[in-house]
Structures are given as structure tokens and as C-alpha cells.
């Protein structure tokens, strides 16, 4: 029973990270109707920004992680947002009126560019991510250990998701995002600058990927330029599972994938860890291609 509880907490923690990444896929899909396959690599760049920035921030703040970590988080989010906006401007915007397949292939190209560019710049060898979350066990009974790591991951994810929800549903820019996701032309007739709304969407999506990368690297501290591939693919599956374009669906899908993965590797074999997401993807595509919360195509962000 207690091991079960332990697995649930680990699963929710991993699932919250997938959820944060999945939200980026789903928002960008909602606005542009294509899968940004470079999203996982923006996540990877986030981990490297954190890797380079954290030591400086930690020494500047006199070693207090509770002060340093939020600063590193903000810097990384700003960095990834800038990267996301740049990718959209340079690679996707010129192709906006082209067939979606063209944009999709371009996204895969951007993904390769970041992965191999990352190997060139950062080197292919794994690096040890600095400790950002003070490690201690909050609860430590005989069988259950709940570390600060899990709690910080889950709380950070919840706060960011609530913030996102607020932005999308309670601000003018968020309403404009939903209007653009319905129809670009009609939205432009309201005076909405479509390009700005798309950039803003990339700011949000990439910012969440940045946060996810720091949380992920705090749990799995070995980082390398290809580290975005699997979390990226799993988060993509999570977004499809929840219903692509649907925010709540992405969060739910992330949790399901995270928990399933943790259970499979805990109770069956850790060698199935990475395979399970794809098994889930095949099942959804077979039985409910619109995803759990997916409704008809237009009612989405």
C-alpha cells in the first residue's frame, strides 16, 4: 500500500512535468493547427540555460536556493520564450499560408537543428545539473519518502497551470488567443494583430517548457542535447490523449502518462518506461482519435 502511494506521488510529479510541456504543444496547435516538433528541444535548451545560469545566481544569492531557484526559473523562462518566438518568426511565419505538412517538416528540421546545434555548442556528453531544489525528506516513514523535490515539482506545476488558466480565460489577450484559435480572419476583423497573438502563444508555451525543464533536470540531473526527445514525444502523446487543442486535456493527459509510466516501470519493468507512451498513443488513435476531452475541432485553443 505504501509503495503504491509512493508510486502515485512519483507519477503525479512526473506527470505534472509532462503536463507543462503538453500545454505548449496543445496551445500552439490550437492557434496554428500544427504540431511544433521542436517543442521538446526548446525544453532541452531550458535545461542548459538553467545549467549555465544557476551557479552564478546561487553564488550571487549567497547559496540560498529558495531565493536562487525562482530567479533561475524566471531567467530560463524568459530565455526559452525568446527562443520560441524567434523560431516562430524565422521558421514558421514565412510558411503560414503553406500546407501544414510543409510547416510540420520545417518543425522537424528546427528540432534537428537544435539537437545537433546543441551537441556542437554544449558538447554531446551528459552534464550534471546543479541542485536547485533543496533536497530533504518532508515525510519519511518506513516505506514512504516524499522529498521536497516531488512537492516542489507538483506545486510549481499547479501554480503555473493556474496562472495559465487565468491568462487564457480572464485576460483580454487570452480571449484574443481563443478568438484567433477559432478563426484568424474573423479575429483580424476585430482589430486583433494575429502575429502578436501567435508570438504571445509561443511565449507562454516555451515559458512552460522552460519551467518543465528545470523541474525535470532537478529530478533527473543528467542533461544532454538529446534529452528533449523522449519527454517531448511523451508530452505530445499526453496532448493527443487529452484532446489536442484542449488545455485541461493536456494537463490530464500529462498526469495519465506520468502515472502510467511510473507504474509500469515500478511494477512491471523499467525497460518498458519509454514504450508505454507509444502504446497509449496507438490505443488513442485506434479508439478515440479526438482524445479524452477533445470536442469538435473549432472549440479549442
Amino acid at each position: 500500500m505504501s509503495e503504491f502511494l509512493q508510486q502515485v506521488i512519483n507519477g503525479i510529479s512526473l506527470g505534472s512535468i509532462y503536463a507543462l510541456i503538453a500545454l505548449g504543444y496543445t496551445m500552439i496547435y490550437g492557434i496554428l493547427r500544427f504540431i511544433n516538433f521542436a517543442h521538446g528541444d526548446v525544453f532541452m535548451v531550458g535545461a542548459f540555460i538553467g545549467y549555465f545560469v544557476a551557479p552564478h545566481v546561487i553564488s550571487l544569492t549567497g547559496g540560498s536556493l529558495w531565493i536562487a531557484a525562482p530567479i533561475v526559473l524566471i531567467v530560463t523562462m524568459v530565455g526559452c520564450s525568446a527562443l520560441g518566438v524567434t523560431i516562430e518568426k524565422l521558421a514558421y511565419r514565412p510558411l503560414r499560408s503553406r500546407p501544414k505538412l510543409t510547416v510540420l517538416i520545417t518543425a522537424i528540421g528546427v528540432s534537428f537543428f537544435l539537437e545537433y546545434g546543441g551537441q556542437l555548442v554544449f558538447g554531446p556528453d551528459p552534464k550534471l545539473f546543479p541542485t536547485l531544489i533543496p533536497s530533504s525528506s518532508l515525510i519519511n516513514t518506513q516505506h514512504v519518502v516524499i522529498g521536497t523535490n516531488s512537492i516542489v515539482v507538483i506545486l510549481t506545476a499547479i501554480v503555473l497551470m493556474l496562472l495559465l488558466r487565468f491568462i487564457v480565460y480572464n485576460t483580454k489577450m487570452g480571449t484574443a488567443m481563443r478568438a484567433v484559435s477559432f478563426d484568424h480572419r474573423v479575429a483580424s476583423l476585430m482589430g486583433i494583430n494575429i502575429d502578436s497573438v501567435i508570438s504571445f502563444t509561443f511565449v507562454l508555451g516555451s515559458g512552460l517548457a522552460a519551467a518543465a525543464s528545470l523541474l525535470y533536470a532537478s529530478v533527473y540531473p543528467s542533461i544532454n542535447p538529446l534529452m528533449g526527445i523522449f519527454p517531448g514525444l511523451k508530452a505530445f502523446v499526453a496532448a493527443v490523449l487529452g484532446g489536442i487543442g484542449n488545455l485541461a486535456g493536456a494537463a490530464l493527459g500529462g498526469l495519465i502518462i506520468g502515472i502510467t509510466e511510473t507504474f509500469v516501470s515500478g511494477y512491471i519493468s523499467s525497460s518498458y518506461r519509454d514504450a508505454i507512451a507509444f502504446a497509449i498513443l496507438i490505443l488513442i488513435l485506434l479508439f478515440k482519435p479526438s482524445g479524452i476531452l477533445g470536442r469538435h475541432d473549432r472549440d479549442k485553443v
Binding site: R178, A179, R298, K300
Partner: peptide
């Protein structure tokens, strides 16, 4: 061309 996913107020 009403925004189907937005409320009347929005």
C-alpha cells in the same frame, strides 16, 4: 462568423 468558443459577452 461568431466566435463559437467564446461567450456572448466575450
Amino acid at each position: 462568423m461568431i466566435f463559437a468558443n467564446l461567450t456572448v459577452r466575450e
